[in-house]
């Protein structure tokens, strides 16, 4: 059992997960896993299926509480926040892109992108104006008034990325964002995601088992059997 990372040691981390443990029943999903991300940095979390990389993302993003260990974001300890406080943090500071199933099927693509702004209290018109800007940026204006089920997989994922970016998050958590796409669409999504994050200064935690997707990141963290190890592959 061995796991390795290249790790950024120069800058102060914006997000730092340290020595996380997480078990589901008798299965240890994380076993002293650590991850740090600096502002504006894209880090790929790689590993085989079942290695614990998605669990690491969920713990680092405050979706899931680890059984032990620390997750610090911008000076705050996430593991001691209440569920409500963590929800608020996720809504205001983080963006999420998953492989599929993240858009509300009853809403149009435009409404889906505007949704995080509406949940934050923004009025409908300015929220939808902002959503239109993102639809144009990602070249999916045609999908504005269609529901997610009525557009292609590539367009759906671009809408999902737009929705993750619309609140100008400081960290975007992307879990296999191209997993359901063909090579060309996957590449387009990765280029749009990384370019938009670079423009806004957002960091990305990118979970993937595909090396070609990981190659969009600044560095990689390898997870195996729930473990990570830093500084081995400097």
């Amino acid at each position: 059992m061995s796991t390795h990372t290249t790790d950024s040691l120069d800058a102060e981390p914006l997000l730092q997960a340290t020595e996380l443990f997480k078990a589901f029943g008798l299965t240890e999903a994380l076993d002293r896993a650590s991850l740090s991300v600096t502002a504006g940095e894209t880090v790929a979390v790689m590993g085989p299926s079942g290695s614990g990389k998605s669990t690491l993302l969920h713990c680092a993003a405050g979706i899931m509480k680890p059984d032990a260990g620390s997750v610090r974001y911008d000076g705050r300890e996430l593991t001691t926040l209440s569920d409500g406080e963590r929800s608020e943090l996720r809504r205001t500071e983080f963006g999420f892109v998953f492989q599929f199933g993240q858009l509300v099927p009853e809403l149009t693509c435009l409404e889906n992108i505007a949704l995080p702004l509406r949940l934050g209290g923004m009025r409908r018109k300015p929220a939808e104006a902002e959503a239109e800007h993102w639809l144009a940026t990602f070249d999916v204006t045609d999908a504005a008034h269609k529901r997610p089920g009525d557009v292609s997989g590539g367009q759906t994922q671009r809408v999902a990325v737009a929705r993750a970016l619309v609140t100008t998050p400081r960290v975007i958590f992307a879990d296999e964002p191209t997993g359901a796409l063909d090579s060309l669409n996957g590449e387009l999504v990765m280029r749009l995601l990384t370019q938009a994050a670079r423009d806004s200064g957002a960091a990305i935690v990118l979970v993937t088992h595909e090396a070609r997707v990981a190659a969009y990141a600044d560095r990689e963290v390898i997870v195996r059997d729930g473990r990570t190890k830093t500084g081995v592959l400097a």
């Binding site: 390795h4 290249t6 090396a211 070609r212 990981a214 190659a215 990141a217 600044d218 990689e220 592959l233």
Partner: peptide
Amino acid sequence: QRAEHLKHMR
């Protein structure tokens, strides 16, 4: 080798 490959892929 993995690290070297990923570096080149980046």
